[in-house]
């Protein structure tokens, strides 16, 4: 029996929650990567629940932690919409760029991808392979060229060719490297000489622990993150740190990635996510 239903059953029953039950709940919440602070808040609130309908009360407690910001993609209604995809190494940025392009294309939009990861070996080739698969044009520069110049060229191409969407892939960077964060700021700044960047998506790997909070904080300080993509949610990790990020910084989760195919990508569903956290 999942934790959630067990918890609900106990609350409904006549027997009160024993201290070992609370300990078990703490363990489960921590195991979902919600972190010690949020876990403590949740348990304190749960201890107050005396509702007949414990299930909805609990869902409400968790839902309350979610950001109140809109989860709709930020777009420019008249013309070119620019989305930048950022994050630390290995979270799935390149794959997410391809998936997002594929979703947009399926909904009838015209899309262009900028291969801004000029650092990792073969990242540009990886994106070109994706581009061929999903039928989207990929603009790239030379290996180790300045990512800002690649992004600028792509933005100009996008603006003149009249596509609706430009998605910019960027190299993975650890947020504590100030020079690499400055490089990212430069990419954004330079693109904005052509067209404003409407959306900055931070890709968070569902297996990430509490470091996800530091990632969200520093990437936001640097390029104002407007949404989160949680990837690899098809594994055993529940991605609880994303909820902690929503609670702490109010940045909404917008997309989730659940597999290696370009169709394994969907809009974030709060109810399903919270159910998943506790199942």
């Amino acid at each position: 029996m999942g934790l959630f239903s067990k918890f609900v059953a106990k609350l409904k029953g006549t027997t009160s929650f024993s201290s070992s039950d609370w300990k078990e709940l703490e363990e489960e919440l921590l195991a979902s990567d919600l972190g010690p602070t949020l876990t403590r808040t949740l348990i304190e609130q749960a201890k107050k629940v005396k509702s007949e309908n414990a299930e909805s009360a609990l869902t409400a407690i968790l839902t309350d932690q979610l950001s109140t910001h809109s989860r709709k993609p930020l777009v420019n209604p008249h013309g070119l919409s620019v989305t930048m995809v950022v994050g630390v190494n290995g979270t799935g940025k390149t794959t997410s760029v391809a998936k997002l392009a594929s979703v947009l294309k399926a909904s009838g939009e015209t899309v262009l991808i900028a291969a801004g990861d000029t650092f990792r070996a073969a990242a540009v080739d990886q994106l070109h392979t994706w581009g061929d698969r999903i039928g989207v044009q990929v603009i790239s520069g030379k290996p180790n060229s300045d990512p800002a110049s690649v992004a600028f060229d792509a933005a100009q191409t996008a603006a003149t060719s009249g596509v609706n969407n430009l998605i910019i892939d960027t190299a993975g960077r650890l947020h504590n490297k100030t020079d690499l964060m400055a490089e990212l700021e430069k990419v954004k700044r330079v693109v904005e000489k052509v067209s404003p960047v409407n959306e900055v998506l931070l890709v968070i790997d569902a297996t990430t622990g509490q470091n996800g909070l530091a990632q969200a904080k520093i990437f936001t300080e640097s390029v104002t993150v407007t949404g989160i993509v949680v990837t690899k949610l098809d594994g055993s990790a529940k991605g609880g740190v994303a909820l902690a990020i929503e609670k702490e910084f109010g940045i909404p989760i917008k997309w989730v990635g659940t597999g290696e195919s370009h169709t394994d990508f969907s809009k974030f569903e709060p109810a399903a996510y919270i159910q998943g956290l506790l199942s």
Binding site: L30, A31, S32, D33, V88, G90, D205, A206, T207, T208, G209, Q210, N211, G212, G235, S236, A237, K238, G240, V241
Partner: peptide
């Protein structure tokens, strides 16, 4: 293993 990995390290490493 990624040093940034969270609690799922337990399940994944066991798997």
């Amino acid at each position: 293993v990624d040093a940034m990995m969270g609690q799922d390290a337990v399940r994944t490493s066991q798997a």
